[in-house]
Amino acid sequence: MANVLMIIEAKIATTYLLEQIMGACRVHGVDHKVKFLNELHVDDITLDTIPMFVRCADPHVLSWTQLLADANRSYVYYIDDNFWRILGDNPLALYYRHPIVRKSLDFAVSHAAIVMVNSSELARFISRYNTRIEVLPTFFDFSLVEEVTPSYTDETRIGFAGSPSRVDDLEMISPLIEPILERFPKAVFEFAGVLPRGVRTEARVRFFPHTGDYNNYVKFQASRNWAIGLAPLIDHEANRSKTDNKYREYGAFRIAGIYSNIPPYSDVVRSPVTGLLVANTKDSWLEAISVMMESPQEREILTRMAFEDVKNRYDLNVVSREWADVFIRFDEARSINTKPLRGGKIEIKKFWRYIERYWLSFWVVYKTGGIYLVSKRIVKKILRLV
């Protein structure tokens, strides 16, 4: 049995998804455990352990990957976003642009025995740091929605769910809301986790708060009974490196999806059979939504074809064998000429990484909201301790 230690910074959608695929790998001879990066100890990484860092760029990962490299211990690095090319001045972009984070990310990726990705676009970019790359298929766990019953409605709901970082992608949707509502009396827009700039909620424009629990997020989407799902992506390098998650979700939920005609969606959607691929212009998106609104029978055919495609290509049980094979090959091929991990060395490094980490948090908060936001965060932390 190959033993994988998933090392994560926080519980996010990606880590929930990876736990799904790792759990499915067990029947193929791969077991796994999960550990937070800031709680990791040298005793957690035994000689039969395969460390897998998941999207880690915190300064702590630099200490750990340096320690592993010095001891000739191989590790895996999983990444599903192009952190080097995130645009804007939002906290996420500022964080990954910081020199400390870049140094940690560059070292961790370049020294990995395998870098695991789900996108050919991302693989091409990563190859400038490391050529030992495995492009693995994405997946969907259909068991999450087996008992979810979509809510009954005579509305024609148009939906989008995502994190607040997706607000820029929704810029192409916001000017279409009013004309669609005027033209189609039964149309309703629902946004979960993020609302387009300048758009106010009202009876036919609804907003639902973001949820960090992926299982609840999936069940929520499946229950809302959206007729049309939107997947806009501004065309830039970071977006082209994303996974095709919206296609998998909309297909599994039997939602007619409309997608920007760029990777990752142009790689997997067969337009107009399993979804609509559209150019990133107001007219193209307005026409695509209108066509879907006017053609309930075509929507039904499209959703059936998309469901069958996603079920055949992405079902967790279908792709888990391929994932498991990577870990089994890794386990068989890694070097036996290893050295002991030096706990004292890592503790000294961790002390300085903690200093860097808190300075980084201060810097991002200050850049985002100035001294006011810094003071507000400090007061909140003090109140938690009282």
Results as ranks from 00 to 15, higher is better:
I8D: 12
E19C: 10
E19L: 07
A24F: 06
A24L: 07
C25L: 10
R26C: 14
V30F: 02
D31W: 15
H32S: 10
K33G: 07
L37S: 03
L47A: 02
I50T: 05
A57G: 04
A57W: 01
P59D: 11
H60D: 08
S63R: 04
A71M: 06
R73T: 06
V76D: 00
Y78W: 11
R85Q: 15
N90F: 00
R97T: 11
R102P: 11
R102N: 08
S104I: 03
L105Y: 13
F107Y: 15
A108I: 06
V115A: 02
M116F: 11
N118I: 01
S120V: 03
I126N: 05
S127R: 01
T131W: 12
R132W: 03
V135W: 06
F139H: 05
P150W: 11
Y152I: 13
T153G: 09
E155F: 09
A161T: 15
G162K: 09
L170D: 06
I173F: 07
I173Q: 08
E178S: 15
E182M: 14
A187Y: 12
R197L: 10
F208M: 13
H210G: 12
V218Y: 07
I228V: 02
P232L: 08
A238P: 13
S241N: 07
T243A: 11
I255Q: 01
Y259C: 00
P264T: 00
P264L: 04
V268Y: 00
S271C: 07
N280Q: 00
N280S: 00
K282N: 05
D283P: 06
V291M: 05
P296I: 01
T303F: 04
A306V: 01
N312L: 13
D315P: 14
N317P: 15
V318K: 14
F330H: 10
D331Y: 10
S335A: 04
K339R: 10
R353A: 06
S361P: 04
V365G: 03
G370M: 05
V386K: 14
